[in-house]
Nucleic acid binder design. Structure first.
Lengths: 113, 113
DNA sequence: GCCTTTGTTCAAAATTCATTGAACTATTGA
DNA sequence: TCAATAGTTCAATGAATTTTGAACAAAGGC
């Protein structure tokens, strides 16, 4: 449905710059915290307005970090962990082990720094 | 001399956004390729104008990715590998193993993507 | 069919970033 | 001292990013 890059299309600099943002890091951290679970966009409503969130989610989808699939009126978001691991071994693990230790998005006033 | 953040001051999002740029990724890749060696800024002159390079080097220094020390009229640049490893274990290794396999900066027409 | 929920899209504004060239500083070497 | 070398700083410009709110679309429940 929504366009997702293939594994071969993943680019290191695109992935890193997508992750180099506090809001998006917080989203990844929360996804990692519940590995395997699909979360709807509304789960992250503490991180900004609806349209802004939509923007950040789209950016991560285009970078190949998450997969987004429609499910009713919602969009289920999952981490593309296996894909990222195969293209950039160890990258996500190292990022997640730091990002996971940060407070979850819904408990924060401002995005993680 | 020049201000460098301490290990405790390193922030994941700052490091990632500093690395999320093709020019800076190329610099890190080149530094990693000659691990331990200190390179002067002029080594990277294929990547842009003097002032632009100065900007990118400063950005990485402020993010804590490199250390820059004056040596005569030159500035010697080194990767802060141990510091990054201790704060974000595995991060640099995974990035470098991808970045190192890219062509070195001086052999390219445009920055790495 | 209508209303609600969930997101997207769009245009506009605000911000930040990257790039350039000129002027400048500091160090070295002749 | 003079000139060359190596970088920095500054202001300006253009590009890209982030953010907002309003309008829109699609699915599900009543």
């Amino acid at each position: 449905m929504l366009p997702h890059p293939t594994v071969e299309q993943l680019s290191l600099h695109t992935v890193l710059s997508a992750l180099g943002d506090p809001t998006r890091l917080a989203i990844v951290g929360d996804l990692a915290r519940r590995e395997g679970t699909a979360l709807s966009c509304s789960h992250f409503s503490g991180l900004g307005s609806k349209s802004n969130l939509s923007y950040h989610i789209a950016k991560m989808r285009e970078a190949g970090i998450i997969r987004v699939e429609p499910c009713g009126t919602a969009r289920l978001v999952t981490l593309r962990r296996a894909d990222l691991d195969s293209r950039f071994p160890g990258l996500l693990d190292s990022i997640i082990s730091t990002a996971v230790s940060m407070p979850p998005p819904e408990k924060r006033l401002a995005p993680v720094d």
